[in-house]
Design a protein around this nucleic acid. Sequence first.
RNA 1: CGGGGAAUAGCGCAGCUUGGUAGCGCGCAUCGUUCGGGACGAUGAGGUCAUGGGUUCGAAUCCCAUUUCUCCGACCA
Length: 557
Amino acid sequence: MRLKDSYFYTLREDARDEDSVSGNLLVKGGFIKKTSAGVYMMLPLGLRVQAKVEEIIRKYMNEAGSQEVRMPALIAADYYEKSGRLKNFGPDLFKLKDRSGKDMVLGPTHEELFAVAAKSVIRSYKDMPVSIYQIQSKYRDEPRARFGLIRVKEFVMKDSYTFDRDEAALDVAYGKMFEAYKKIFNELGLNYRIVKADTGMMGGLLSEEFQAVTEIGEDRIVYCEGCDYSRNEEVAETVVQEVPCAEELPLQEVATPHCESIQDVCEYLHADPKNSVKALLMKADEEFVVFFIRGDREFNELKACKLLGVKEIGFADDALIATSNAVPGYTGPIGLNAKIVIDREVLAMHNFVCGANKEGFHYINANPKDLHYDVCGDIINVQEGDICPVCGKPLKFTHGIEVGNTFKLGTKYADALDLTYLDASNKAQSVWMGSYGIGLGRTIAAVVEQNNDEHGIIWPVNIAPYKVAVVPVNMKDETQKAVAEKVYQELTAAGVEVLLDDREERAGVKFNDMELIGIPYRLTVGRKAAEGILEFKDRRSGESKEFTVEEAVAFLK
RNA sequence: CGGGGAAUAGCGCAGCUUGGUAGCGCGCAUCGUUCGGGACGAUGAGGUCAUGGGUUCGAAUCCCAUUUCUCCGACCA
């Protein structure tokens, strides 16, 4: 590729709207361009990187026995109605009507259509296993797009699906896909962790996420250094640690004027928040529920929803609160006439502080025997200091970008869309499905997050848009120009992807641009061009050495 | 959804408080000098000041509405 007369640009200043290192570098380097919130153009450089990632993915998908197809993004809403996801996706789903008024959606993920496609080949148990996949654009109306390619409304995803006769066969298919995923992310050189997570709107039996480890990651992930336990924070189990107690003291009401937050109360009473219990006045679907957790804990909405079997939990409004004797700021589990859900940990506490359901008053020396509750369970996030539920060692925390996810779906979609087969005894059975996704944009962004320096991106060689940049220092120097052209031709003939920076720019501009866009190697054609000597520089290590043209071709081939 | 901030040349910004018909840096064009780490000088081109309404003799500037972008929050009892 010759840069002169090609579509290529870089920005000299940081992108104003980008809030992540990867978003900024990709925009600045001219890989992508934002068209509106959460929607990006993929420009020539970006598309080349994406194509390389696609090829790596294809290699391992094909190796795992999956065949590539391409589904439409524009889908009749009926399919999502049947699976129940028209409701479950809710506002995240892009909905539209065609000219006749028929409801359509832009596909957010394609379990439904793949199940329909599978019907064409699956009649008998002998027709399985079968697996198909696609690389295609997905649409999700995210409430808040951010972080460059990490959270967007339109994105390219590789999604594959497996179809099997029973759970044991699904386990085998899942295992194959899982291994393929490891190979893909290893080949991309990503630092990642595999964590168990919530199945969310996908439903099903199991979800495991491939999380690229980075500071900017939106997911908190929890892992144990002592064993292989790792979880997305949303589903990480807490372990109740028994605290010894010499003597349970009698309950006592104390005045705590103007202390409406746990922090205020604890400061006023000189108590440790770890020894207090706070109330969360919530609306679980339509019902008023008060949750009680230790004062220094965070509430985990997902766990609470599952515990109560409700869809949504939000803060209660004043009208709802007024149906009880709860006093915001002073709500406690003792003598409260509302539905009470209590975290398990509270039942292991002794002589703690909690609200007295009376303006300006709290209890001290409250104990589990003093309170009643309707439901008890694990409704809090794990936090620093908590221990591994498997081996008891301290848990570690980090952030991750979810670049891949694998689901054991079970028969949910097959049941909804009538995907069945006849077993050996001629009985109709539901097909067991698995679904497996990789976000291409997120993967690219994660690679950039993990591979950059103050000069720009440092692409791993296997997904770099070009392997080497040939940079003639002075385009007015005929010798340099001729040598650069010769190197370019020979490398191209040898099958090396090479970028010839034949722009009439000063050396510094070219060097900076090639570093910004992260080309792994650079061949500078300069002072020693007449002697046939080039300077070779490694973008990652910064090391440089001299090469003849032949040596350069041999090295890069 | 709730609360901030912003929208002026291709990009990044100033001007707005105190209305008087738009400016800076980069980039771009032409010429000259320069030429291995984002050169220098000279001369230029380029803007319905987001949109719609209002106030006014006069609006980028003041007022209202709308749109878009962006940040924070959606763990407070």
